[in-house]
C-alpha cells in the first residue's frame, strides 16, 4: 500500500519533470524544479513517517540511537523495529541506490517486511529474510536473467529473546557488531542481498548469539565506512569504524550518535556524501 502510493506520487513528479524539460521554455525550469523539490521533500516526509517513531524505538530497544543521514531528500536506507511474540525484531537496511530509486526500494522493503512478519509465525530471522527475498523478487519480477535489474536490499536483522538472553541474527551483506567487555565481536553476513542474486539464491544463515547485559549492538549500512573523505579523500573503511565504536561504546547512546555524526561529517569535509548513512546502536539491558 505504502509502496504503491509512494510510487505513484514519485512517478507523477518525474513525469512532470520530463515534460517540463521537453515541452516547456527554459524560463519555467526553475519554477518546475522548485515544485519537484517540494514534492520530493514531501515524499521524504512520508518516508520518515514510515520509519518507527522514537516512542516505538524506545519501547522495543530501550537505550538506543540512530544515525540516519540520507544523501538526498529521500533515502534508500531504512530501519525498522517491532515486537512479536515477546521478541524484539530489529532491522537496519540499505536498498540498492539512493535518492528516489533507493526510496522506492525502501518502501517496498518496509512493506514486504511488515507483511512477512505479520503473516509468518517464525521467529527465525533467516526464514524471514528468505521470505522477504521471495517477495522482493516477485515484486520486481526477478528471475535471475542476465539482463534484468539486480536491485535488492542489504540488511541485517536481529530477533532478541530477552527472557532467554538470545539474539538471532541473519544478514544480507551487512554484518553485526556486538561490543562486549571492550571487545568487538563481528558476525559476518551471507554474501548475498535480499533480492535476486548473481548466482542461485541460497537460504540465509541463522546465527544464535548469547547476549549479556551491557552488550552494545550495532547495525548499519555501508554508508559510513564507505564515505570518502579525510586528508586523502579515501574511504573511512571498516577498521577505523570498528575502532571508533570501540572508543565510544561506553558513552551514552545519544553521545555516541553525536560523535559518529561529527566524525563522519568531519571525514566528509567538502566531499559529497556518496550514499545514505545509517548506524543503529542499542544496549542490552
Amino acid at each position: 500500500m505504502y509502496f504503491s502510493a509512494f510510487n505513484s506520487f514519485t512517478m507523477r513528479a518525474l513525469a512532470g519533470l520530463e515534460k517540463t524539460v521537453i515541452r516547456e521554455s527554459p524560463t519555467c525550469i526553475n519554477t518546475r524544479n522548485r515544485e519537484i523539490i517540494k514534492s520530493l521533500r514531501y515524499a521524504g516526509m512520508i518516508q520518515k513517517a514510515l520509519l518507527p517513531s522514537d516512542n516505538v524505538m524506545k519501547r522495543v530497544l530501550g537505550d538506543y540511537f540512530t544515525l540516519f543521514m540520507p544523501k538526498d531528500v529521500v533515502s534508500g536506507d531504512f530501519y525498522w523495529v517491532a515486537s512479536k511474540n515477546g521478541h524484539s525484531v530489529i532491522v537496519a537496511a540499505d536498498c540498492t541506490g539512493h535518492g528516489v530509486p533507493g526510496a522506492l526500494m525502501s518502501i517496498l522493503g518496509i512493506s514486504c517486511l511488515k507483511e512477512v512478519i505479520v503473516s509468518d509465525c517464525t521467529n527465525r530471522p533467516n526464514r524471514i529474510l528468505n521470505q522477504l527475498r521471495e517477495k522482493v523478487m516477485e515484486a520486481l519480477s526477478q528471475t535471475g536473467d542476465f539482463d534484468e535489474a539486480k536491485d535488492g536490499i542489504d540488511l541485517s536483522m536481529c530477533i532478541i529473546n530477552h527472557d532467554r538472553s538470545e539474539l538471532q541474527y541473519s544478514g544480507a551483506n551487512n554484518p553485526l557488531y556486538i561490543i562486549r567487555d571492550g571487545e568487538l565481536l563481528e558476525t559476518k553476513p551471507d554474501k548475498m542481498p535480499v533480492g535476486v542474486n548473481a548466482i542461485d539464491e541460497e537460504p540465509f544463515s541463522n546465527h544464535l548469539i548469547r547476549i549479556r547485559k551491557n552488550d552494545k549492538v550495532y547495525m548499519f549500512s555501508d554508508g559510513f565506512p564507505d564515505q570518502f573523505g579525510g586528508p586523502r579523500g579515501k574511504k573511512f573503511k571498516y577498521r577505523p569504524f570498528k575502532n571508533l565504536l570501540l572508543d565510544i561504546h561506553l558513552k551514552n547512546m545519544q553521545d555516541q550518535r553525536e560523535i559518529l555524526r561529527e566524525t563522519v561529517t568531519d571525514w566528509m569535509g567538502d566531499n559529497e556524501q556518496i550514499d545514505d548513512i545509517l548506524v543503529l546502536g542499542f544496549a542490552i539491558t
Binding site: 507483511e115 528468505n130 521470505q131 521471495e134 523478487m137 516477485e138 528471475t143 542461485d200
Partner: peptide, 18 residues
C-alpha cells in the same frame, strides 16, 4: 518444502514466490 527448495528441486525456476 521451503520455497527455496521448492524452486530448486521442483519447479526449477528462479522466481519470487510470496
Amino acid at each position: 518444502l521451503s520455497t527455496l527448495d521448492f524452486k530448486k528441486h521442483i519447479i526449477k525456476k528462479r522466481v519470487g514466490i510470496s
